[in-house]
Amino acid sequence: MLSISNCHIHTDNGRIELPDITLKSGELLVLTGPSGMGKSTFLHWILGDKITHADISGDIALNDIPLNGLNIEQRRIGLLMQDVHLFPHLNVIDNICFALPYSLTGSNGKKLHKSQRRKVAINMLDNIDMGYVAQHYPDQLSGGERSRVGLIRALANQPKALLMDEPFAALDPKTGALVSQWAYNQLQERGVPSIMVSHDIKNIPPQAQHLDLATYYHSTK
């Protein structure tokens, strides 16, 4: 469960007092609002990134464990951005292997070796009928394939929550709608609480919660 409370965002132009947010396993919150209001900044704050152009305060907890004192790599929160940033020097399997936890063990309790980790990655791709891109490099993938591989890579890391910053905005409307519904199903299936920033109000999955930042915005100018 991801919970955010007492959150205040101060930007040059105004401030936002967010209501308390609680996302249970598999729930999705879609954040909308005009450009420059601080949606992406809010995501980066949850992730633990350094915020330079706004002041954000508040409490974040994941499964009742406070996250504020932890750095990005300790939080175990996944991130999916518009440009998925698949690492260009690694093929699809190795991109996924990179995300698999270091301590991943097999049924015998022993740490997996290289080929076993690659097998896990291939299984993940096969499960979504994308085994055919296993050996492809990121520049050989279409936009939709990249987004799906990006999500699978993020999930391979077994994150406790996932943040998505307009992950499907670069896709054409039809593919965007299909991939976002597919992504939501994947997240629900795996029980990962997620927050997604989106400009596309029409394509919000029906089961998702919706928060429009503009509702809580107070201009200071």
Binding site: L47, D49, I72, E73, H85, N157
Partner: peptide, 11 residues
């Protein structure tokens, strides 16, 4: 962005 992704994946 790569570093951010790397850190988000626990590195």
């Amino acid at each position: 962005d790569w570093l951010l992704q790397g850190k988000a994946l626990g590195y």
